[in-house]
Write a protein that binds this DNA or RNA. Structure first.
Lengths: 187, 187
DNA sequence: TTTAAGTCGAACAGTGTTGTTCAGGTTTTC
DNA sequence: GAAAACCTGAACAACACTGTTCGACTTAAA
């Protein structure tokens, strides 16, 4: 592999992230142009549009997972959840459309596979919190996980719509989730 | 207008709802075929794909709003919220993709306009609950509204993924939202 | 039963996308 | 400096979709 080629692949992935995040239907031509590269060159490195999307998503997910790896999820589960939110909301918001692109271009199996990394951390934290009595157990863990994602994405939407201040995002999400996850007090 | 034409328009709208709910990218040809009608006939009644989508969405929204009109939103705001959830979750789940189709085909202004009807009921209920001390006021109403929609949609996804029992949907959503909306107890 | 309204499929042009091929030019790399 | 790797734009076929036109046919309505 020539150094030239590696540089181009990197530029393509970078441009792919930008373009797909802006428009999940971005064409291969758009991405190539944004990368400052001919369309033919792009096809020389990625056989399909699908392969390209998959590579972009995997790269983004790997980076996200690396960022999460440096977060301390120990101690009080509720405070750990706050830290998880603080580390998650911005990358999620920035790559929301990328996920949409992946949903449309990738077969469900591959889609699930790429997600598993970061999703596992959420599951582990929630299960630990349930066992410690910090989070409710009257609803399935899968539902709490779904609510985590839904809430972060809702914040991303409100942010984009101008209804939510960037500074308020993390506290708002965390406050809401903690309230939703708190075990019900027996009446 | 001939009775024939009216019948066809109805069939087209019905088929449009079905097709778009199954696939937000359903083509005009697909919809015409599902309606048992030629493509030309469809274009005789709707100038654009956009006009067709808009008509389908408006019809769905009108029906939804009519369904909500027969629900009692008085009394305890918390119980009213439960009734709102019970009346909302199924139509929302069934037409989730329709909304996606609308987002892609309609200009933002028209999209917002169609939504206003049902959305207003949610806002009114939440504001009443806030004033009555039943719902939290430390987060903006717009955020609570966003959480309402996000939670219902999350349930729709979990339902489609087989992670949630249909019978459990309404209680799960209501329990989660009530917990999230409860005013924080001062520590 | 006549007439106007409506329908039908086939066919057409236009557009945008994907993925491929070609012939010639530029960079690495050794 | 020579060879291999790489890049390039232009052009091409294939496909799917939109929106329109045509001429012939069927149906509702008075």
């Amino acid at each position: 592999m020539r150094a030239d080629a590696l540089r181009n692949i990197d530029a393509i992935l970078e441009a792919g992230h930008r373009c797909l995040a802006a428009d999940p239907d971005a064409s291969v031509g758009d991405i190539a142009k944004a990368a400052g590269v001919g369309r033919v060159t792009l096809y020389g490195h990625f056989a399909n549009r699908a392969e390209l999307v998959e590579a972009v998503v995997q790269r983004a997910l790997a980076r996200f997972d690396a960022a999460l790896a440096s977060v301390d999820f120990g101690g009080d589960p509720r405070q750990a959840l706050v830290r998880l939110v603080e580390a998650s909301w911005r990358p999620t918001a920035e790559s929301a459309n990328l996920l949409v692109a992946a949903e449309r271009a990738l077969p469900p199996e591959k889609l699930l596979a790429t997600h598993e990394g970061p999703a596992k951390r959420v599951v582990e934290l929630l299960e630990r919190g349930r066992e410690a009595g910090a989070f409710r157990t009257d609803l399935p863990t899968s539902w709490l996980v779904a609510m985590f994602h839904a809430t972060v994405h809702a914040a991303a939407n409100e942010l984009a719509a101008g209804n939510l201040d960037p500074d308020a995002a993390a506290p708002t999400i965390a406050t809401t989730l903690l309230a939703a996850f708190t075990p019900p007090t027996p009446t």
